[in-house]
C-alpha cells in the first residue's frame, strides 16, 4: 500500500525544536514500521537516524511513538499503524533525544541499569559445578530476564513524569533478578542501595509499568516484592518502614486503618520536625469538620479479634 511516513527530524545544532518530514513509501501492509523506516533510509534519505536491530521484538531497541502510541517499530505492522494512509513516527516523551529518533539511552536507560548493579556475585564454593537451584526459581528469574529493555515501562511510569531521576521500573526489574537470585550473596547491600534517593521507594505502584510491559513481566509486582523484602530485612527509608509497620499494627489491633496514628507514626514519634509538619493540615482538617479520630475513641469494630488472630498466625508462619 501507499503510505505517507511522517518522520520526526531533529538535529541538536538547529535549535531545540524539530519538525516532521514526510516520506512517501510503497510497502506491504503486513510489513512492519521498522521495514518502512529501513526502506526510507536505504532508498530516500540515508541521514535519517533511528535504532532497531533484531526485527522480532527481542532486542528492545526500536521503541518509538508511532501514530501517537508508544510501541516497538518491529512489532507494529504498517497496516495497524496507519491512519488514513499516514503513519507518524516521533520520539517517546520522557527521555531526551540526540538526533531524530536517537535517544540519550546512556543517561536515561543504561546508567540507571548500571546503578542497580544488575549482575550476581556468588560465593564460588564449588567453581566446577553448577549451583543447585529449583526450576521454579530459575523460571521466575528467566521471566524477569526476558526484559528487552525497551523502556516502555519507564515511559508509562507515573513517577517518571514528575521526576526523571527516578531509577524507574526497568532498572528495578533488573534489580529484582539480582535480589531474588539465590546464587547472589549481596542481598542486604542491594536492598540498601535500592533504598537510596530516587530508588524503589519513589515507585507509586500505579501499575502503569505492568500495563505497558510487552513481555508481561509485571514490573509493579516485582517492585512490591523488593519492598516487602526490604521491610522484612529492616532496610529501606525510616518513614516508609514506619508507615508500613504502623499500617500493619493498626489493622492488626483495630481491623481497620487508624489514619491519625498512621500520620504520626510515619514521621516517627521522636521526629519533632516531621511531626510539626503535620500540624497545620491537622488543624485545618479539624476546623473543616474532618475528624479522623483514632479508632479507639469512636467505633469499636466487630471481628477485630479475628483479624488480630490472622496477623498472629501470619507472624508465626514468618
Amino acid at each position: 500500500m501507499e503510505i505517507t511516513l511522517k518522520f520526526y527530524r531533529f538535529s541538536p545544532g538547529n535549535g531545540s525544536k524539530g519538525d516532521f518530514q514526510e516520506y512517501p513509501v510503497e510497502i506491504d501492509e503486513s510489513a512492519t514500521v521498522l521495514d518502512a523506516l529501513m526502506q526510507v533510509k536505504e532508498d530516500q534519505d540515508s541521514t535519517i537516524a533511528f535504532r532497531g536491530s533484531c526485527r522480532t521484538g527481542f532486542c528492545g531497541d526500536c521503541t518509538m511513538r508511532i501514530s501517537r502510541r508508544n510501541r516497538m517499530a518491529c512489532s507494529t505492522t504498517v497496516g495497524a499503524a496507519q491512519n488514513e494512509g499516514t503513519i507518524t513516527v516521533e520520539p517517546v516523551r520522557l527521555i531526551t533525544t540526540t538526533k531524530d529518533m536517537m535517544y540519550d539511552l546512556d543517561t536515561w536507560v543504561y546508567d540507571k541499569y548500571k546503578a542497580v548493579e544488575p549482575w550476581i556475585e556468588t560465593d564460588q564454593k564449588s567453581p566446577d559445578k553448577e549451583h543447585v537451584v529449583s526450576n521454579k526459581v530459575v523460571q521466575d528469574l528467566r521471566k524477569v530476564m526476558s526484559c528487552t529493555m525497551c523502556w516502555l515501562c519507564d515511559e508509562g511510569c507515573s513517577t517518571m513524569v514528575v521526576d526523571r531521576k527516578f531509577v524507574g521500573p526497568l532498572a528495578l526489574t533488573k534489580a529484582y533478578r539480582s535480589v531474588f537470585d539465590p546464587r547472589d550473596n549481596r542481598t542486604e547491600a542491594r536492598l540498601k542501595n535500592l533504598s537510596e534517593k530516587n530508588g524503589m521507594w519513589d515507585c507509586c505502584h500505579c501499575y502503569e509499568a505492568s500495563e505497558h510491559c510487552p513481555k508481561g513481566i509485571d514490573p509493579t509486582e516485582r517492585i512490591f516484592a523488593l519492598r516487602n523484602k526490604a521491610i522484612k530485612a529492616n532496610a529501606g527509608i525510616p518513614t516508609v518502614r514506619n508507615h508500613y509497620r504502623s499500617f500493619a499494627k493498626s489493622v492488626k489491633s483495630h481491623g481497620w486503618l487508624d489514619e491519625a496514628r498512621l500520620a504520626i507514626e510515619t514521621e516517627g514519634l521522636t521526629n519533632i520536625k516531621g511531626q510539626l509538619k503535620q500540624v497545620p493540615l491537622a488543624i485545618k482538617a479539624f476546623r473543616k469538620g474532618k475528624r479522623p479520630l483514632p479508632y479507639f475513641l469512636h467505633e469499636k469494630r466487630e471481628g477485630r479479634d479475628r483479624i488480630k488472630r490472622i496477623f498472629e498466625k501470619w507472624e508465626e508462619n514468618e
Partner: peptide, 10 residues
Amino acid sequence: EHMGVPFSRD
C-alpha cells in the same frame, strides 16, 4: 552458570 545464566533445571 556461575556468571549468572539461569539454566533450566531438572
